[in-house]
Design a protein around this nucleic acid. Structure first.
Lengths: 215, 215
DNA sequence: GTCTATACTAAGATAGAC
DNA sequence: GTCTATCTTAGTATAGAC
């Protein structure tokens, strides 16, 4: 059994440490991180409890000591992603300055959140709505999209953003560009600040040189 | 059995029509379209043959008359997506004109392809590499990404594209913006030309007004 | 081209010992 | 906190009748 247990359960020497700080075997947090990694590698639905057990180096049934179900693992992960993104939106609401400054703050904040919570955000962005847990998370995410759309509309009226594009398309394409991070960002290859600079530059000013050549 | 068969199998009156044109029951093409729709709704792995059977209005076993396996359905769909995208790349290779003109051609071609073959492209973009079929399709797609990256590098040397962003980031973010279409494009809400215009505008020139306001 | 019936395998989850 | 053993359900796929 247990074909590819790469990770040895971090058995603790120092127990008796006020309940949820030590880690005799796994605690819920460390277990969650391993599971989310496997979810993202194969997709949530393609991941069986057996595969999780293999990655954890324990048996299927041992997982149920930490969580009630596979869905609870998903729920815990999605909550982390959503609460992190909520904080970004809250920060954006309170921001002041020019349109560009406020937009830049939002973009950079979102990118930081996506990078720092990448495993959880990845899971969030790939939901299909197959369970109540997924549906609720998708609703929370949808609310953020709508809020950004309203923000774009406002910025257009204020005159900071071009008005030849609909708020819908501005929103969807902007999120599309940023969210693609979960599909290709790798800490070894990509510097977070450089990535954020590139996203801001592309979104604000595009990729062509102002004095475009005519060959 | 068969709880929500919305689609009645299109039983044909006019048979004997040269093998693969008529449709007594389903032919492979019409069956594929229904199945791919279900795959995209729930995700490939979360879709069982039973769900396909329900959507088709036939039984599970009847599906095996048309295809050897669930994986063959996936393979047929991915082939359609990839061959369509291959044609876009081929067209881009032969294009002439300014950097902007050639870039615009590529963007518009890709967007047309994504929209016109949306179900198949959607499936392609969501692969996790869980089977040989998926891995091979991902390789073909990766080749296209690399080709675009080389194109960006070339355009930077020629002077048409800003050089403060790496080809990698230009490529990934551009594809991210465009590919997001599969997640939100809806024919009833979005006009294809308007969507393409918006993508070109954002990618080439960004979203801010040239004469940005300082409030 | 589709059906019923069924073989076979793996899934998520639980009980109770250690 | 993890184990073995097991329950139950659902999965893909096949055989053979109509």
């Amino acid at each position: 059994m247990r074909k590819e247990s790469t990770m040895t359960p971090p058995v603790g020497q120092d127990r008796e440490q006020a309940a949820r700080r030590g880690r005799p075997g796994y605690d819920q947090e460390s277990l969650l991180m391993v599971c989310v990694g496997v979810f993202n590698e194969h997709g949530f639905d393609a991941t069986s409890m057996g595969m999780l057990a293999d990655a954890l180096g324990i048996t299927k049934s041992a997982i149920y000591h930490h969580v009630k179900s596979k869905d609870e693992l998903l729920s815990l992960s999605l909550d982390r992603a959503l609460s992190r993104l909520d904080r970004v939106m809250e920060q954006a609401r309170q921001a002041e300055g020019t349109t560009r400054e406020r937009f830049e703050l939002l973009v950079r904040g979102t990118i930081r959140a996506v990078i720092e919570e990448k495993p959880h955000v990845t899971l969030l962005l790939r939901l299909r709505g197959n369970s109540p847990v997924e549906l609720e998370a998708m609703n929370r995410r949808r609310a953020m999209t709508r809020e950004l759309e309203a923000r774009f509309e406002h910025a257009q009226r204020e005159g900071g953003v071009r008005t030849d594009l609909s708020p819908r398309h501005l929103t969807r394409f902007s999120f599309g560009l940023i969210n693609s991070l979960v599909e290709w960002y790798r800490p070894e290859r990509d510097d977070p600040d450089q990535v954020a600079d590139a996203a801001v530059a592309m979104l604000c000013d595009g990729i062509l040189l102002p004095n475009g050549n005519d060959e």
